[in-house]
Computed example of a mutant assay.
Amino acid sequence: MNWRPTRANHAVMTFDPEGLTRTQREGDACVACHKKWPRPRIRIGRLPDDAALYACPECADALLPQQENIRPLPRRVAFS
């Protein structure tokens, strides 16, 4: 189980390493577009051996499922 910095649980996709390059499997390139610079920083999923896979912001928006039922708490509740 993975936790976001907000400690909200989210599902992590598991990717098949068969179609990925070495740089993608090592986290040095985006899993979708192969972009290496700037280095992708958004954790998008994992491999079966629990190695992390990363995506650039543009590809992460397309790959991550949208969670519509999450609503931010009012500031007075969140920081009381």
Rank of each mutant, 00 (worst) to 15 (best):
R71I: 02
I44M: 09
C59S: 11
E26Y: 00
P38F: 10
P65D: 04
D50H: 12
C33Q: 01
P5V: 02
P57H: 10
T6P: 04
A52I: 07
C33P: 04
Q66M: 04
N69V: 00
L20W: 02
L73R: 09
E68I: 03
D61I: 05
T21H: 03
W37H: 08
R25W: 01
G27C: 03
I42K: 12
R41A: 10
N9S: 07
R22L: 06
R25V: 03
L63W: 05
N2Y: 12
D61R: 14
G45L: 07
I42T: 15
Q24P: 10
D61S: 12
A29T: 08
P74L: 04
G45T: 13
R75D: 06
R46S: 12
P17C: 00
C56K: 07
C33M: 01
S80A: 14
R41E: 12
D50E: 14
A8V: 09
P48F: 00
T23W: 02
I42S: 10
A55E: 11
A55C: 08
L64Q: 13
M1H: 11
R75P: 05
A78M: 05
W3A: 07
Q66E: 04
T6S: 12
K36G: 03
P48S: 03
P5N: 11
G27R: 01
R71V: 04
E26F: 00
K36I: 07
I42Q: 15
C33Y: 00
R22S: 05
G27T: 06
A29Q: 14
I44S: 09
A11G: 10
V77F: 04
C30M: 05
P5E: 07
A51S: 15
L73Q: 06
E68Y: 07
L64H: 09
L47E: 13
C33R: 00
E18R: 12
P40L: 08
Q66K: 13
A29N: 06
P40F: 05
T23R: 08
P48M: 02
Q67V: 06
A32R: 09
V77I: 15
G27A: 03
P38W: 11
P74D: 08
L63D: 10
R75Y: 02
G45Q: 13
I44L: 11
T23I: 03
C33D: 06
C56H: 06
R46I: 12
W3G: 06
R76G: 02
L64K: 13
F79T: 08
C30R: 04
A11T: 15
T21G: 05
M13F: 10
V31D: 07
P72R: 05
N9V: 05
